[in-house]
Amino acid sequence: MSEVTLVVNGRKVSGAVEDRTLLVHFLRENLNLTGTHVGCDTSQCGACVVHVDGKAVKSCTMLAVQASGSTVTTIEGLANGADLHPVQAAFKENHGLQCGFCTPGMIMTATDMIRRHPDGLDEATVRAELEGNICRCTGYHNIVKAILAASKTMSKASKSKANKAA
């Protein structure tokens, strides 16, 4: 057993867990943050993607104890209060989800992708960057559309912020 301490969605949390506990299970079972899902055993489906220290990682492929000391953002912590994050809003607007199971991982991956491509994205890049997220419902068509739309919205927003600052 080890003591794990994390900042999750802005809140400091800790708990004693078996060393074999995966981060995803700590989030789901200890913190009751069940938005992060497990869809495979081989680190491929991406339903478990969260941000650890600002980067998208697969929480099924990291021990909770390994993450101890880190800052974690899950799907539950993405929206700003009642306001949806632009990626969440874009998934809804563009029908980028059906059963919803892969959606949290998709949105966390998309948010990370957009952060890393501040100058915008094209369809081929989005499709390549989604390699680690599997969806069985949408055929990806509307997921790609949603990410492109969110990327546009967010780069516009950051540009107008930058303009104001200047």
Partner: peptide, 19 residues
């Protein structure tokens, strides 16, 4: 029409059996 059910899925509030 955008889907009524989406909000819970995009905010991680869906409730599946494992939850």
């Amino acid at each position: 029409v955008a889907r009524k059910e989406d909000k819970r899925f995009i905010t991680g509030s869906g409730r599946y059996v494992d939850d």
